[in-house]
Amino acid sequence: MLSGNRADLYPLNDRLKGMLSVFNHYKVSVKTTYIDFESSMMVKKIQIAQIIDSPKFDAICCTDDVTALLVKQHTDEMNYHPLITGFDGTDFIHSFFPELITVKQPIEDITKLMCDILIKKIHHPSKHFESEYIFPVTLLD
């Protein structure tokens, strides 16, 4: 599993927990590695090249689609083709990189809820809202 910076795990925490629960259920050996999510693309590419220096993984699960695409680019250059998955599943990624296996978030539903909450908060500043909302995700393969 290739994740963003360890110091900034939210919302990555739930993504990691979800992936780990599946791997643990199937008794799959997992190595988790972190890269600096805020780094430039060049720094990320260097970090990925250092982590994936030989064909030793059957699959590489990334906590975002951009990292998954950088991993795919690097492994393709090595002529190494593990299963690579991302997370976010935006329309842009799905349109331009339909071959990427990714977890699609319901972005429209999340956006609508956030707008509704914002409008309610403007009209009722003292009203308290849930601190966390959970939406279902879909695997796009």
Results as ranks from 00 to 15, higher is better:
residue 26 Y to N: 08
residue 93 I to V: 04
residue 75 T to Q: 01
residue 11 P to F: 09
residue 43 V to P: 00
residue 9 L to R: 10
residue 90 T to G: 06
residue 1 M to S: 07
residue 39 S to N: 07
residue 104 K to F: 12
residue 19 M to L: 13
residue 6 R to V: 14
residue 136 P to K: 10
residue 33 T to C: 12
residue 21 S to L: 12
residue 139 L to D: 01
residue 19 M to W: 11
residue 54 S to E: 14
residue 1 M to D: 09
residue 118 L to K: 11
residue 36 D to Q: 06
residue 123 H to L: 13
residue 100 L to M: 05
residue 96 F to A: 05
residue 22 V to T: 07
residue 34 Y to P: 00
residue 46 I to A: 14
residue 31 K to H: 09
residue 136 P to G: 03
residue 114 M to L: 13
residue 35 I to C: 00
residue 108 E to L: 09
residue 49 A to H: 06
residue 87 F to S: 06
residue 138 T to N: 14
residue 4 G to W: 01
residue 57 F to C: 03
residue 4 G to L: 01
residue 68 A to Y: 06
residue 22 V to D: 01
residue 67 T to K: 02
residue 128 H to R: 14
residue 75 T to A: 03
residue 67 T to E: 05
residue 9 L to Q: 14
residue 3 S to F: 07
residue 70 L to K: 07
residue 53 D to E: 11
residue 71 V to P: 05
residue 18 G to I: 00
residue 1 M to Q: 08
residue 14 D to A: 15
residue 121 K to W: 09
residue 134 I to T: 13
residue 91 D to V: 07
residue 115 C to A: 15
residue 96 F to Y: 08
residue 71 V to Y: 09
residue 26 Y to D: 06
residue 95 S to Q: 09
residue 13 N to P: 00
residue 137 V to H: 08
residue 83 L to P: 05
residue 102 T to H: 02
residue 9 L to Y: 12
residue 119 I to F: 01
residue 137 V to S: 15
residue 64 D to M: 05
residue 105 Q to H: 13
residue 7 A to S: 14
residue 127 K to P: 03
residue 72 K to V: 08
residue 40 S to N: 07
residue 65 D to R: 02
residue 104 K to W: 00
residue 67 T to V: 10
residue 41 M to C: 04
residue 52 I to A: 14
residue 93 I to G: 04
residue 47 Q to F: 03
residue 121 K to P: 01
residue 7 A to E: 12
residue 12 L to M: 13
residue 40 S to I: 05
residue 38 E to V: 10
residue 140 L to E: 06
residue 135 F to R: 03
residue 88 D to V: 01
residue 5 N to T: 09
residue 65 D to F: 08
residue 100 L to I: 00
residue 82 P to Y: 02
residue 120 K to M: 13
residue 79 N to W: 07
residue 123 H to G: 11
residue 93 I to F: 01
residue 35 I to M: 06
residue 63 T to M: 08
residue 69 L to P: 02
residue 102 T to M: 01
residue 109 D to G: 07
residue 89 G to A: 01
residue 32 T to G: 06
residue 19 M to G: 12
residue 85 T to P: 08
residue 56 K to L: 13
residue 94 H to Y: 15
residue 38 E to G: 06
